[in-house]
């Protein structure tokens, strides 16, 4: 019996597997896998497929900042309305409501420090309800979504072990 958590874990790690390959790995038919994938998409459980890229190794300039945003929640709307005003900006790649000393953690990716800084001072800080922002720039990415940025697996095992 096809288990949807197992299927999700499989494509979470490698979205390029074909339906046929997944069917073999999970020990079920291609039809069953294809049907379940459709179902997961229609339920908005599978939201999309992306690729992990180490942009630092390319010629493209890119900086990532994590910004703590403190806000005053609006009457009747809680945090959701403010969240919407934030995440509509395409520069904001992630937006989370947090517990602890601030309210939103937003992640911004842009090409230069200056662009990020001006985006925050011109667009985020002046928003109604935003009390303060604290910006942290990422200096180096070591690991993201379970993937190491700079490591090649080495296999130093013996040639034959019986």
């Amino acid at each position: 019996m096809l288990n949807r958590i197992e299927l999700l874990q499989l494509i979470e790690h490698n979205a390029r597997l074909s339906v046929a390959e997944m069917a073999v790995m999970l020990g079920d038919s291609e039809e069953a896998v294809a049907a379940m994938l459709e179902e997961l998409k229609s339920e908005n459980i599978i939201l999309g497929y992306t690729t992990m890229i180490n942009w630092e190794k390319t010629e493209r300039e890119s900086v990532t900042a994590m910004i703590e945003v403190r806000v005053t929640p609006q009457r009747n709307q809680g945090f959701d309305q403010l969240a919407k005003q934030l995440y509509r900006y395409s520069q904001i790649s992630s937006c989370y409501l947090m517990s602890g000393g601030f309210d939103f953690m937003i992640i911004i990716e842009d090409s230069t420090l200056r662009e990020v800084a001006s985006f925050i001072s011109e667009k985020i800080a002046p928003l109604d309800g935003v009390v303060s922002t604290t910006t942290h720039f990422i200096l180096k990415k070591y690991k993201s979504n379970g993937i190491l940025f700079d490591s090649k697996p080495i296999d130093d095992r013996e040639a034959v072990i019986l």
């Binding site: 040639a159 072990i161 019986l162």
Partner: peptide, 16 residues
């Protein structure tokens, strides 16, 4: 033979 070619082959010969 396998030892000579170690590093240049796909090893499905390892019991660990």
């Amino acid at each position: 033979l396998a030892n000579e070619m170690k590093g240049n082959v796909i090893s499905l010969s390892i019991g660990e």
